[in-house]
Nucleic acid binder design. Structure first.
Length: 876
RNA sequence: GGGCGGUUAGCUCAGCGGUAGAGCAUCGGUCUUACACACCGAGGGCCACAGGUUCGAACCCUGUACCGCCCACCA
């Protein structure tokens, strides 16, 4: 290969598509259950079929891919199985919206027609997000792709439902549910978002049936009064004692209802008298159960008042509210109206105000399932990372309530329950032909479907083949890691824990890593509705996939919500380009020859240094990824590549490359450093690393399946690191002096280094110092007489001396020394105070005390020197 | 009403017992033959506030103030 093939700037576009196809064709993504390598499996949070890739997916999935690629390179047989969620309510909404654009409703198609329509739509659009996952470079095992409505899931869902029913953990009951009048279905508690809404508290008089004053109740929802079956007061409330047991007349409808006493009433709130509407309020429902009161449902599926609402039948709930309030006012029964903030439930999907409604639904008993799921985290079979999330998990699990699993939707897993003509219920794995109880053959299957999370909750084992006893199940369950956002800990993680323990007898995964939620550069949560979301595909089109991946990885500090600003992304794009150009440099210098062999101990110090640093970085990256500290891994690599490899070693190597005697070994070191770095970076930057790696002399078909670097102790060289650090401090100090006095960059100057100890690295690498600091002469002397008109700058016990003659601005030096003196004085003062404190000397660690003494000594001697220099200048 | 988290350089964030770091932005200087998506330098912070523990606190404890999130059936 010639360098002509490498463009000056990295061009991600064609590179990415090419390598992804290459990896996939070679089967690198595939897990092999017959492998004798250790297994590593990770559960993907299956995106909705309706969905397209948003930044939240890109964030969590990039981190997952980093882990997967890392583990694969470490030699694990890794399984990262792609899947899609049928997303019942969300998908139904999308398809209904499509229909509505065609001027149709789902009822026009009928249930079967609608079902077909959804399946068709899934076929054409379900692949969209999967292709987007490919564009991101994710190394998913595509041959094992699953879908929560595929035949295996249908069977598994049935098995789980029937089995839980048989165990008494699924039951049917009539309670108050959260009902979305727009979606026309019940919702679980988790699908309801409570938000305070400014409302009013209406005080309404219910006159006595005996013609007396009756009682004034306070309500935020006057329309529900049509379903009132009592008024309740506190049993010990003196104000109403006489009324208990009497009747009052429900306004509008004129129905007499009793005044009852129940301790749940808060005497302080409103008037202390509360209307009881058992069919439309959970509290009232419970009170009605206790007190034996009837329930009157006044609304239909879409919150339109029904025949029980008398004159308001046929009106929408809010329209009716208005009419009722006006009527009460006309009739003089509206005592007063006060503003009042009301916490109101909204449908998570369509944001319609949820109506509490009495309705027959299917429930899953949660307490018996939660108990082992709590224990499994307590005893560490599953651990949360960061650990704080276990608190959130426990909090919810310990206060868990039964889960309403039935939905009145058309899209989803049908509930395997049939009702016969005699009203008996049959729940069965196979479609029954006769009632299990009475043999009646006139059966109708429930029209309800299951909450989408019912099937998602089975994901970790059904995707491995359950209920069959497959190799995959034996090998990969429990999965090793589950990574997701905290927003679905309850929806998904908790339910996988409960169902996994129930049906597999073990936890579904060993570690749950919770990542933050991506925010914009102002810290706001990104969402379409806010209009501040960024499209990851747009970002990759403009900056390249690797830059996007690196940005997301570098942002992933444990436990924080990352803020994604475009500036940051541009910075990491530059990093990818930097890596590209460093590689170009190495490739240009390889000259097609085979890498020379070398003995590490005989390498020049800078070469030992860069290789030693490389071992440290390898150790750091491995440790960081092991703890899910993605930011640390990314930063360690960023700084190694940019600050050490590029800014120092490549510059140093230029001098070696110019010398035919040193060039071959330098090339070998450069190549080794680059090749190892590419392997370290590959999990984060898969494309650019492959593109470069393939151009290097290499073994194996792909960097993707090359071994992940581990630190080689034989190449750890503490002495070289120490010496090089000193050398870099020296060069930097000289450069700083040059910059301070505005010495032209091109101009070569003479420097004398007074080094009583011999000069160490500076002496050994004098040539390098000259090259890096752009010196004409570097004289290293053990001592030197004081010379006037000389800049003196201490560094590591040595002193840099540069003659001022014709070079330096004396005023500038005076000012600089003045500033330095202030700083040094302040620091020395602090140290002196500390050392004068006998308790510090006595109790602090000896090393800390010694260090302080040493530092103070150095500071004081520098102060003396500064004073001398200033004197000298004053004199001159 | 409960619970959790945050408050560190202009911005976005690391650090979590030995008197502060990064990226970007800012300022000055450079086309030094890999890279101007670059190079070489510089400036910038009483680590929200008040107490306490400690020889020593951004870091541990207590409280306060803002900000954010989650959970919650007071009409």
């Amino acid at each position: 290969m010639t360098n002509d093939e490498l463009s000056k700037a990295y061009e991600p576009r064609d590179v990415e598509r090419r390598w992804y196809a290459f990896w996939e064709e070679r089967g690198f993504f595939r897990a092999d259950p017959t492998s004798d390598r250790p297994a590593f499996a990770i559960v993907i949070p299956p995106p909705n079929v309706t969905g397209s890739l948003h930044i939240g997916h890109a964030f969590t999935l990039t981190l997952q891919d980093v882990i997967v690629r890392w583990k694969r390179m470490q030699g694990f047989d890794t399984l990262w199985l792609p899947g899609l969620d049928h997303a019942g309510i969300a998908t139904q909404m999308v398809v209904e919206r499509q229909l509505s654009r065609e001027g149709k409703r789902k009822e026009d198609l009928g249930r079967e027609g609608f079902d077909t329509r959804v399946r068709e739509w899934k076929e054409q659009s379900g692949g969209k997000i999967l292709n987007q996952l490919r564009l991101m470079g994710y190394s998913l095992d595509w041959q094992r792709e699953r879908y929560t409505m595929d035949p295996g899931f249908v069977r598994a869902v049935r098995e789980v439902f029937v089995s839980l029913y048989e165990q008494g953990l699924i039951y049917r009951g009539q309670y108050i549910v959260n009902w979305c009048p727009r979606c026309g279905t019940a919702l679980s508690d988790l699908e309801v978002e409570t938000e305070p809404v400014p409302g009013q508290l209406w005080h309404i008089r219910y006159p006595g049936a005996d013609g007396g004053e009756g009682v004034v109740v306070a309500t935020t929802r006057p329309e529900t009064m049509l379903g009132d079956t009592a008024v309740a007061v506190h049993p010990e409330d003196e104000r109403y004692r006489a009324l208990v047991g009497e009747k009052v007349v429900l306004p509008v409808l004129g129905r007499p209802i009793p005044v009852v006493a129940d301790a749940f009433v808060d005497r302080e709130f409103g008037t202390g008298a509360v209307k009881i509407t058992p069919a439309h309020d959970p509290n009232d429902f419970q009170a009605a159960q206790r007190l034996g009161l009837p329930s009157i449902d006044i609304m239909d599926d879409h919150a339109v008042l029904n025949a029980n609402a008398g004159p308001y039948a046929g009106q929408d709930r809010f329209q009716a509210r208005k009419g009722i309030v006006e009527q009460l006012q006309r009739e003089g029964l509206l005592v007063k109206t006060t503003p009042h903030q009301v916490p109101l439930g909204h449908c998570q999907r369509c944001h319609t105000i949820v109506e509490p409604r009495l309705s027959p639904q299917w429930y899953m008993k949660m307490a018996p399932l939660a108990e082992p799921a709590i224990a499994a985290v307590e005893d560490g079979r599953t651990r949360f990372a960061p650990a704080k999330w276990s608190k959130t998990y426990f909090e919810w699990m310990r206060n868990i309530r039964d889960w309403c699993i039935s939905r009145q939707l058309w899209w989803g897993h049908r509930i395997p329950a049939w009702t016969c003509a005699n009203g008996h219920t049959t729940v069965a794995r196979q479609d029954p032909s006769a009632c299990a109880e009475c043999g009646n053959r006139d059966l109708a299957q429930s029209t309800d479907v299951l909450d989408t999370w019912f099937s998602s909750g089975l994901f970790p084992f059904v995707t491995l083949g359950w209920p069959e006893k497959t190799r995959e199940l034996a090998r990969n369950y429990p999965n090793d890691v589950m990574m997701t956002g905290f927003d679905i800990i309850f929806f998904w993680v908790a339910r996988m824990m409960m169902l996994g323990l129930r049906f597999m007898g073990d936890v579904p995964f060993r570690t749950v890593f919770i990542n933050g939620l991506v925010r914009d550069d102002k810290g706001e949560k990104m969402s379409k509705t806010r209009g501040n979301d960024v499209d990851p595909l747009d970002l990759i089109a403009r900056h390249g996939t690797d830059a996007v991946r690196f940005t997301l990885t570098a942002l992933a500090a444990a436990g924080t919500d990352p803020s994604l600003g475009e500036e940051r992304l541009v910075g990491y794009k530059a990093f990818v380009n930097k890596l590209w150009n460093a590689s170009r440099f190495v490739l240009m210098n390889l000259q097609g020859e085979r890498a020379a062999s070398y003995a590490f101990s005989e390498l020049p110090q800078p070469s030992r240094w860069i290789l030693s640093r490389l071992q440290a970085v390898a150790a750091e990256v491995n440790a960081a990824l092991g703890e899910f500290r993605f930011d640390q891994a990314a930063n360690a690599l960023y700084h190694f590549v940019w600050d050490e490899l590029c800014d120092w070693y490549i510059e140093i190597a230029k001098t070696y490359l110019a010398d035919p005697a040193q060039a071959p070994v330098a090339r070998a070191v450069l190549l080794e450093a680059l090749e190892t770095t590419l392997r370290l970076l590959h999990p984060i930057l898969p494309f650019v690393t492959e593109e470069i790696w393939q151009r290097l002399p290499h073994e194996g078909p792909s960097v993707m399946v090359a071994p992940f670097p581990t630190p080689d102790p034989a190449k750890a060289d503490a002495e070289a690191e120490r010496e090089m650090a000193a050398l870099m401090r020296l060069v930097t100090a000289i450069r700083t002096l040059r910059a301070t006095y505005e010495v032209e960059p091109r101009r070569r100057i003479d420097v004398t280094l007074v080094a009583p100890g011999g000069g160490g690295a500076a002496a050994a690498q004098a040539e390098l110092v000259r090259a890096l600091a752009r010196l004409e002469r570097l004289d290293i002397v053990p001592q030197d007489a004081d010379r006037p008109q000389t800049i003196k700058q201490p560094v590591d016990g040595m002193e840099i001396r540069i003659p001022m003659a014709g070079l330096f601005d004396i005023e500038a030096e005076r000012a600089r020394l003045g500033r330095e003196r202030e700083k040094v004085q302040a620091e020395a003062e602090g140290l002196r105070r500390r050392l004068e404190n006998p308790q510090f000397v006595e109790r602090a660690k000896p090393a800390v005390v010694a260090e302080s003494r040493e530092k103070l000594g150095a500071l004081l001697s520098r102060l003396g020197q500064i004073a001398g220099l200033l004197d000298e200048m004053g004199a001159s």
